[in-house]
Design a protein around this nucleic acid. Sequence first.
RNA 1: GGAGGGAUGACAGAGCGGCCGAAUGUACCGGUCUUGAAAACCGGCGUGGGCUUGCCCACCGUGGGUUCAAAUCCCACUCCCUCCGCCA
Length: 435
Amino acid sequence: MIDLVQLRREPDEVKAALARRGVSSATLDEIIVLDVEHRRLLQEAESLRAEIKDLSRQVGEARRDQDVARADGLSARSRALGDDERQAREATERVAATLREALLLIPNLPAPDVPEGLDENDNVEIDRWWVGKDEGQPFPEYAPHQRVAHWDVGKELGILDLEAGARLAGSMFPLYRGAGARLLRALGAFALDAHLEDYEEIRPPSFALTETMTSTGHLPKSQDDMYAIPRDDLWAIPTAEVPLTSMHRGEILDEARLPIRLTAQTACFRREAGAAGRDTRGLLRVHEFDKVELFAYCTPEQADAAHADILARAEALLRSLGLTYRLLRLCTGDLGSSSARTIDLEVFSPGVDRWLEVSSVSWFRDYQARRANVRYRRSDGTTALVHTVNGSALAWARIWAALVETYRQPDGSVQLPEVLSPYLGGRTRLTAKAS
RNA sequence: GGAGGGAUGACAGAGCGGCCGAAUGUACCGGUCUUGAAAACCGGCGUGGGCUUGCCCACCGUGGGUUCAAAUCCCACUCCCUCCGCCA
C-alpha cells in the first residue's frame, strides 16, 4: 500500500511516479477525494462521540447526587445524539472501506532507476555470466548433445514423468522420479545449507489466510493466479514470500534485531491463468514447483545492502552449479505490483534454447510492511515501517531443466556438477536404467 | 469431533456498568546518590488516527448486541491450555 500521507502532501510527485506504471492521475484524484471525505466524516462522528461521552459522564454525576430529574434529562439528550452518531459512524466506515479497497489496488512507486518500458521485452540486461568468462573465454558454444529438451532427457533417463503428473493433477503438475526426484531434493538442501549461516531456516505452512495473502499484495489483485480453498478461507502460497512477510505481522521489532534474515524452501503454487498455452511444455511453466526463498525485514538504510546480498547469493549458487545466466533490470511495465525495484536472474537452457527466469530479487520499500503492519522502534523511541526485500535462490524446476540440458553428455547420460555430490550420495551421473 | 478453563500494556497480573487507557510488580529510559556498578530514592514509560498543537477519538482476542454510559453484561466466532475421541 502506498503512503496516503505522502499522496496528500505531494500528490504531483506520487502521480508522476505512478504514471510510469500506467496509473492515471484521475484514479489518484478519486482517492484524494475519498480521503478528504473520510476525514470530514470522521471528525463529525468523533465530535458527536465526544459529546455523548461527556453527557454520560454528567449522567453519572447527577445519579450520584440523587438528582433524578437532571439525570433523566441528560440521558434523553444523549440518547437522541446516539442516533446521529451511529449514522455518522456508519457513513465514515463506508467511505473508509471504499478508500481502502481503492488503495489496495494501487501499485508501489517504482524506484527512479527502474527503466521505462511496456513489457518484458523492455527489461534491461545488466550482466551475463558463463563458465570461463572470468578467464576471458567467449560465450559458450553448446554441442548438439546439449540441444535436447529436458522433457526428452527426462523421459530417456526415466527421471521425469509428465504424463503421470497430469494423470494425478492435470497438466503442468510435474512428477519427478528416481534420480530426478533426488536431484530436486539435493538442490534444496544444497541451497539451504549455503544460506544457513546468515539466514534462519523457516518451514512455514503451505497455505495462507486471505489476510496473509493481502499483506504481500497478492490479493486482491492477483486472485485468479492463486489456488483457493474457499471452505477454509485458505489459499495455496505462490511463494514463501507470503508467509515470511506475515511472520511478524502487527509487530513492532527492536531496531537492534534488524535485519532479520530468513530463508525457506516451500512448494509454490501458481494457476498461471493469464499464461494459457505460453511456454508451457515440460518444466518451462508449471503449477507447482519447489523454491528456496531469501527474505529480510530491514531498516530503509539497510535495504540496499540486503537486496545486494540476496542477489549475490542467487548468483553464487548459479555459478557454483556452472550455469550460464543473465541479470535483467525489470522495466516499469514488467515490475510486480508490490515491488519498487526488481532484478531477475535468467538461466540459459541450451536444450530449449531459452533464457528461463529462476529468481526475482525485489525491494518493496515499506509497501508490504504497511499492509502487514510491521514496524520497528528506532533508537530515538519513534516507530517506523520496516522495509522488506526478498528473492529466490532458487526456483528448482527450471534449474533442474537447465542442469539436465547443460550437462547432457554425448552418450545421453547427464554428468551433474561435483558440488552436488554430497547431496546425491556421490551419484552425480544420471544414466538410463537398463530396462 | 465432545467437555471444561482462559485471552487486559514489553512481560507478569488486578480490574462492584460511570471517577478505567486501565492498579501493582518486573523490564526499559532519564535523574539523585556513588570512584564505578549495584541497591535505594525521584521522574518518565502502549499503539494508531483527526484537527483549530492543545485538545479530541479509537483500541482490554475478533465481530455483533444491550445501555445515556461497556475491559466489565449478552450472543457468535477465533486462538491458547487441560481432558476424552480420532489420527501420520
